[in-house]
């Protein structure tokens, strides 16, 4: 018995040591956001004592409004992408799901292809197409590319995978009651497939927020960038001011990390279901 408890203690100690080692870079980014550059270099691993909010305050006081502007733009782009991709994805999936087996598997294969295409491959023609449509360097252009270019394929996969687990009887019953197809989609199917919507929302939201190459090239370097790209553009020049850098990074990462911590259970669930279908 005694040996068992000792084993347990050893295992916990090992797990703690591994977690601490693995998380050191995150710890460094977090604590150093609350230190002066002098404190950072004196000992990067020390706790921020006394803590300072200067890095955060100066990040907000920048004359280019990088943080306020970037956060606003990221919220707009992410929000608009989700508002389009969720109804479009669920409706397309519902339609594909009811097709006869052959066309259904052909269409699913067609969408599966999009999940694996490296985003760099079609970027050049994508931008020429945006230019032709007059949407280059605009938000609608970026949002359209987000929705069509890959995220919709992901949504279709998650939704079709989930629809397989939903009983068709409820939908049939609603139809017998005389409900129209759009009504059934909104009031019967959407509530049934809510976990799939949460998965799509979490992952597409995270990817859009963290996306780098598409916003960099589609919105262009000059105006109204997202926080992820804004951070990149400003910090390539500022890279010696470590305190400032960690402050901006903390502000860029706080929303996705907080979202993850809040929705952690759904996150892991979605990861397993989405990934196994993808």
């Amino acid at each position: 018995m005694k040996r068992r408890t000792r084993q347990r203690g050893l295992r916990l100690a090992g797990a703690l040591a591994a977690t601490v080692a693995f998380c050191i870079p995150i710890y460094i980014a977090f604590v150093n956001a609350f230190k002066t550059t002098y404190q950072i270099f004196y000992n990067p691993l020390a706790l921020p004592w006394p803590p300072t909010l200067d890095n955060i305050v100066t990040a907000f006081q920048r004359s280019d409004h990088l943080v306020q502007g970037g956060l606003t733009n990221s919220v707009i782009v992410t929000g608009a992408t989700l508002i389009l991709v969720i109804p479009l994805g669920s409706l397309t999936s519902l339609w594909v799901f009811r097709l006869p087996p052959k066309p259904k598997s052909i269409l699913l294969g067609f969408f599966a292809f999009g999940l694996m295409v490296p985003p760099q491959v079609g970027l050049q023609p994508t931008i020429r197409l945006l230019q032709a449509l007059g949407l280059h360097l605009t938000y609608p252009g970026l949002i359209l590319v987000n929705v069509g270019g890959g995220y919709l394929a992901f949504a279709v996969f998650v939704y079709v995978g989930f629809l397989r687990t939903v009983s068709q009887d409820v939908i049939e019953a609603a139809r017998v009651d005389g409900a129209g197809e759009w009504r059934i989609w909104w009031s019967v199917v959407m509530p049934l497939i809510r976990p799939a919507t949460v998965t799509v929302g979490i992952f597409v939201g995270l990817w859009t927020w963290n996306d780098f190459l598409s916003p960099l090239l589609i919105l262009g370097p000059l105006k109204g960038q997202t926080i992820t790209v804004g951070m990149y553009l400003s910090m390539s020049t500022y890279s010696t001011d470590y305190g400032q850098m960690f402050g901006i990074m903390l502000l860029a990462a706080v929303i996705p990390v907080a979202g993850y911590l809040i929705s952690q259970r759904e996150f892991i669930y979605g990861l397993m279901s989405g990934a196994s279908k993808g």
């Binding site: 969408f111 295409v117 491959v121 994508t126 069509g148 270019g149 919709l152």
Partner: peptide
């Protein structure tokens, strides 16, 4: 529901399939 699915298919074809063919 076909009109909605058509929009989905069209967007996907336009922003994933067309760029690859053009490339």
């Amino acid at each position: 529901l076909f009109p909605a699915a058509a929009v989905g298919l069209a967007l996907y074809s336009l922003w994933v399939i067309y760029p690859i063919i053009a490339s």
